[in-house]
């Protein structure tokens, strides 16, 4: 279906790499419809729980919990981990974001499965090797993980949730996310294009 890299790039919206053996993946939902659905999920979260969506905070809870299990004195002496550990009366894993992110894995899996999009592969452009792609994935994840703590949340917690709540810090973070990404996009273009 997609014979060469050019048409693959042009057809990014049509799903990717159809295989003769695998089921043809369904096309993605139109951006406005998907965005409307996502907005309703966020609104439901506000109305039911009084808080929005998030992702990076769940990883912080897991890390704080892990360090607390291995080196409790070290974890409890650190104000950052302490924020996630609380007073110790409740496990840091019994946390709203931890359960929400577990749901994200399940929801993503169900959607991918139903649409014929579950496929074991390394997502990358045609001009980069798998090895280089994985190194950059790790470096990018590291920069993003560090940044998410300075920004006090990531794209879900700040840009999406804080954006909808007209939070000043969230709008600043959101503008800077786009600025940072556009500023370095040129240098990593071979990874994607």
């Amino acid at each position: 279906m997609h014979a060469d890299a050019q048409s693959l790039a042009a057809d990014a919206g049509q799903g990717h790499e159809s295989h003769a053996a695998a089921r043809t993946p369904q096309p993605y939902v139109h951006p406005y419809l998907a965005g409307f659905g996502l907005g309703l999920v966020l609104l439901a979260s506000f109305v039911i729980m009084g808080r929005g969506l998030g992702a990076s905070g769940a990883f912080s809870s897991v890390i704080a919990g892990g360090i607390d299990a291995v080196a409790p004195a070290h974890a409890q002496g650190n104000a950052f981990y302490g924020e996630y550990l609380g007073d110790g009366s409740r496990s840091p894993l019994m946390d709203w974001l931890v359960f929400e992110v577990l749901g994200v894995f399940v929801g993503g899996f169900l959607s991918g499965l139903l649409a014929g999009r579950f496929k074991k592969e390394i997502g990358r452009g045609p001009a980069i090797t798998s090895g280089k792609r994985l190194v950059l994935a790790f470096i990018g994840g590291g920069i993003l993980g560090f940044g998410s703590k300075l920004a006090r949340g990531c794209m879900s917690g700040q840009a999406l949730t804080g954006g909808a709540l007209l939070n000043v810090g969230s709008w600043a973070a959101m503008m800077c996310i786009f600025a940072g990404a556009y500023a370095v996009a040129y240098f990593v273009r071979r990874q994607w294009q």
């Binding site: 940044g147 920004a151 370095v184 990593v188």
Partner: peptide
Amino acid sequence: VGGLLLGVGFVVGG
């Protein structure tokens, strides 16, 4: 600053 790092991490890591 965190937002800038989030953006850089996003486009480098994907």
